[in-house]
Every structure is written in C-alpha cells, then in structure tokens.
Simulated assay, not measured.
Amino acid sequence: MNAKRNDHLATGIIYALVGIVVIILFGLIGYILVSGVPHLSWHFLTSPSKSFAAGGGIRDQLFNSVYLLLLTLLISFPLALGAGIYLSEYAPDNWLTSLMRTAIEVLSSLPSVVVGLFAYLVFVIQFQIGFSILAGAIALTFFNLPLLTRNIETSLSSVPNLQREAGIALGLSSWKTITGIILPAAVPGILTGVILSAGRVFGEAAAL
C-alpha cells in the first residue's frame, strides 16, 4: 500500500510540474501574441527597413533569413543524409567510427561565433567569396551539419532490426532495404530533425 501510495504521489507531483511548465509556456506565447499581433501589418512585412528613421519594415531581413535557411538545408541535408546512412547502416563498430561520432558531437557543440569566424577566415577572406548569402549558407552548413547528421543517424538506428531482416529475407539488397524499408520508416524522425535544425539555423544570426 505504501509503495502504491508513493507511486501515486510521485505521479501527481510530475503531472503538477508538467502542468506548471505548460501554463508558463502558453502564458509567454499568449503575451507575445497579444502584444505583437496588433502591430503586425502587410506594410511592416513588405517594406524595407530604415536605418535612422521610424516606420520601416522587415522585408529584406525576412527574405534573407528564409533564403539563407533554404539554401543551407539544400546544401546540408544531402550530406547529412549520406553521413547518417553510412554511420547507421554501413560503418563498422570500431575506434574510427567512435572517433567520427565523437567529432560530430564536438562540432555540434561549437559556439556559433567560432563557426562564423572560421567561415569568415576561410571562405570570405581565403577563397574571396565575399559577404554574400552563399558564404552565410556555407557557414551555417558547418554549424548545422553535425546536428542534422546525428538526428538522421538516430532516426535510422531506431528502426527495428526486424524490418532489416525482413528485407534481407525477401531477397532485397542492402541498399534496396535501406531506401525501400528503413528510410520510409524513419521519415517522421528525420522530418523532426530537419525541423529542429531549421529552427536552429533560422535563429543563429551570430554565425554571420
């Protein structure tokens, strides 16, 4: 009886804490919406900003952010997908694979300012690309690639081995099993990883 009562008590405390967090979250979102939505207008979204005067908009900043996000995902997603498939399905379990995973974890924890300075020194100065959307997309690709690779690898590894064995039992090749069975089953996890990485890229202006 005591164990059951303690279990109910702990469950109630957990639900109460979760409820408090949800209430705070919705309170913050509601406050932002109530305070900000009345000031939104088509003119504000489509007019250029003014450096030293009031009344400007966010057209250029919004377009550049969306364009930069799409270009970064266009560059980083194929690379991350290939690396994730290799690490999950083909890489042997040895010290080299462990070293690669450790390097990915280290790179994913680098501050955005460090990545931005590296991209500035290498691509803007050394390769003379200049300050451009392409240079920013390459910088954010270095910033986004480790996180996206790790998410894709985790999504593929979470697919049960029974599905891999079923593909082999049907006479499918390893690549056909991956593309026809494993990838479709891992799409929800991969999509979640893409959304999370897209939000991180969209918010990391310090890398530029």
Rank of each mutant, 00 (worst) to 15 (best):
S41T: 08
L69S: 08
L145P: 02
H8K: 13
P146W: 05
P111W: 01
E165Q: 14
A207T: 14
S132Q: 11
I181F: 06
S197P: 02
L172C: 10
S112H: 07
L81T: 09
F44E: 02
I104P: 00
S108F: 01
S109P: 01
S157I: 09
T141P: 02
I104G: 03
Y90V: 10
L172H: 09
G180C: 06
F26M: 14
F63Y: 13
I85T: 07
G167F: 08
N144L: 03
L147F: 15
L9P: 00
Q61L: 09
A91F: 05
L70H: 03
L69Y: 01
L40G: 02
I182L: 12
L140W: 03
V21N: 10
S49D: 09
I125W: 02
G180N: 09
I138F: 11
S112K: 04
S174V: 12
L69E: 01
P188F: 06
L28H: 04
I138P: 04
I32F: 11
I58P: 01
A137S: 15
L172R: 11
R101P: 00
V21S: 13
A80M: 03
L196P: 05
I178Q: 03
A16S: 12
A198R: 09
H8Q: 13
F131H: 11
G12L: 14
Y67A: 15
S173Y: 07
N6D: 13
L74A: 15
G82F: 10
L70M: 13
L208G: 12
T154C: 02
P160D: 14
L196E: 08
A139M: 03
G19Y: 01
A119V: 09
T141M: 11
N94L: 04
S51N: 08
R200V: 08
L62M: 13
L148V: 10
L196C: 06
G27L: 06
T72E: 03
G55K: 02
T97P: 04
T149Q: 06
Y67N: 09
S109W: 02
D7P: 00
G180T: 10
L73R: 04
A103N: 07
T149D: 05
N144M: 12
R59N: 07
N2S: 13
P48T: 06
A206C: 02
P184Y: 04
N161R: 15
G55A: 04
I75K: 07
K176L: 11
L25I: 11
R200D: 07
P48W: 05
T154F: 05
N144W: 00
L99C: 08
L81P: 01
I104T: 03
F118R: 00
D93I: 04
S174W: 09
V201H: 03
M100K: 09
A10P: 00
A119D: 00
Q128G: 04
S35K: 14
L71D: 00
L110S: 05
H43Q: 14
